[in-house]
Design a protein around this nucleic acid. Structure first.
Lengths: 222, 222, 222, 222
DNA sequence: TATGAATGAGAATTCATTCAT
DNA sequence: CATGAATGAATTCTCATTCAT
């Protein structure tokens, strides 16, 4: 019943994952020591190897597991949106909210995912592909409904949009904490919505009229 | 006059920089050994330390020096474009061309710059900021001329655009070489132009009419 | 119970210290490789860094820890001597005995301590100062009791005496092993006693009469 | 005629020796880089190897050459002293004066000579032996003249005396510069004379009467 | 002789991973 | 399951020495 005992009850697996997220975010994957993670998780170094094959595996697990959670969350939230335009706007807003709520995780996905993708032998970030498919789905739906330009290539749009949001997230993460107000991410979200939705719509005026209404009711997104 | 003798004449500094670009691109900064670079440059390990303070310095030098070259090139090329819209289109096309021509350099700028920014103590990628300012300049000009939406925030647009292009570049780099045809980057460039220029223009129809003409005459960009 | 098992039980810390003393004495601090010490201690290279911050720390630890042992031993032994004259004689004899018993340690204290003192930033051999204070104490006591010359400066005597003994120790260490008989150090001790005690006494005849008796009963000193 | 030209006329060999003395004294032999010496001597690194076989050779040359100068100087000065007692006193004073005049050289002889002796394969400091023989000579003469105790072992006395002076020199070198007044070395010299001469004399009273006179006329010794 | 750029052997230290307890 | 001491491979950087000019 002591807090320490209680602490030990929390699944070590999760403790390790959370510790790793914190440490990877703070020091970067390469400079993070396994023993740092063990310390942060209050476990012995060796214990980590009971749950994960090695340091790489720890990172990959974070990618796959956390991305799955994000995918599930996004899909659930997007289900509530009536049309591709609001879905896209919602997606963008959700992404920024997520970065704000889980900056450590965002830092890892932003900074380490590329590295890993490129340099970790035999790892293809499958879940990341699934995540991007959410955008593809929205774009296709928009085209099917005759709202989006016919020559929009979903495969390109998904990457362009992800890249745009991701880069802004990087910037936001690196900015001094004081500048990270709720305001700035919401504002950034609006700007990205403007560009991408107007850019995709056959008739950009549609968004100009919808926009105000869309942002009226949104508060904490996640 | 023998090729070997000639080879020795080529400035070692440049040989090392070029070798480092190749090796960093292939293995990533952290996994690249200094001796790999020395081998690639046909130079002794110690020689590298005559020209660079340490491994970090080598990476930073690549960032600063190569980005400066890119900045100079971009500014020169953009000077020839008559209006903000073509300037923006041109910028996008140039970026993709650059990635195609110098994939190793692009890989480093794309993958390592973030890492460094975040984890290399006391390095601020000043030149990168300068590079992004090229976009800011175009957006501001477009707003001044009444072409772009008044509420477009240049600081956000620059990052969103860079992120979009950069992410697509990453994707392209990671794609199997066979898929990297001239076609695909040009096509991607068009898509990104569509989104961003339409997204920014007060009257997106302007781009729809300009577009065909713009892409008619472009060949190898750099 | 097997000797190997037993061997492992011996504290690694001590094994490393002892190995370091041996190796530093044999090759000198600078030419001694950490891996030499590891080999000698039957330990992996990395293990040394679990117990010591670095190579310098290993040397400093030897200085401080072993000097403390010597100080404690000397103080205990000197307590048994009735007057400053026999204390001084005893101190000299003990020093030579110590060199004979622990030649490796003596070699390090003799050869490396100066270097370190002069060239290891921010290390002051505090324990060495404490050791020398033993002599100062004896000289002061001798003056207080009216035995030693009034103009004898304890601070000078302590260094002169230490220097004399130390130099003879160096010589002895460098001499071929065969020449290092019990005889020679005891003989050297006598000579040094003669010079310093007669030199300090108001009435040198006092020592001439005491001398024979003092050396009669001394055997293995430590 | 320009100072630079003039500077170049000074034999490079000597320039290098002097530079080496300065650098070895300041940083210690092991931490001194050959290029430091080259810089100090205003020669190229490679030039040093035209005059000396290697770094070790440079140190050994300093030992042998400078010690020879000292030996010559000491012998000349001692020739003027009438009896073994004043010779011994003079030797001691000269030694302290030398340390004061050439502290860099003294530092090297004091700190590096032992190291080298012990760890430089196949180097026996022959000149150092010759230097010590000066003392042996004085002691033997003193015994022959019936002044010194018959049981004084010249071989022991020479080392004890050298050790005493040398250790005090070490201390003096390491002391803050402000404390290094003319006073302190002269005072130290007196103390050492007192101990060793009284220690050696059959009749110590002899020195007590001679002492004042001896120190009256001495000024700058070298 | 003189140069100093280039060499490359060498050593300290770190840290992911293992395994005896 | 859990521990954490021990391992030792791996890598950066230094600097004495060489040699083409």
């Amino acid at each position: 019943m002591s807090p320490e005992k209680n602490n030990k009850k929390i699944d070590k697996y999760d403790r390790i994952i959370d510790a790793a997220i914190k440490v990877f975010a703070r020091k970067g994957f390469h400079k993070a020591r396994v023993s740092d993670i063990a310390d942060e998780a209050n476990v012995a170094d060796g214990t980590i190897y009971l749950y994960f094959k090695n340091k790489d595996d720890l990172l990959i697990t974070i990618f796959e597991e956390k991305l799955q959670e994000i995918i599930d969350l996004f899909i659930a939230k997007l289900r509530g949106e009536p049309d591709p335009v609001s879905k896209l706007a919602r997606f963008i807003c959700l992404h920024f909210s997520m970065m704000e709520q889980y900056p450590d995780l965002a830092a890892i996905l932003t900074v380490e995912l590329r590295q890993s993708h490129k340099f970790m032998r035999e790892y293809t970030p499958q879940k990341f592909g699934e995540f991007l498919k959410i955008i593809t789905g929205i774009v296709i739906q928009g085209k099917d409904q005759g709202l989006f330009k016919e020559d929009a290539a979903p495969g390109v749009v998904k990457r362009a949009l992800f890249g745009a949001i991701d880069e802004m997230g990087t910037f936001w993460m690196l900015a001094p904490r004081v500048k990270r107000g709720k305001y700035s991410t919401q504002d950034a979200a609006k700007q990205v919505c403007d560009i991408f939705i107007r850019g995709l719509l056959k008739d950009p005026a549609l968004w100009d009229s919808k926009k105000a209404e869309f942002f009226k009711q949104k508060g904490g997104e996640l």
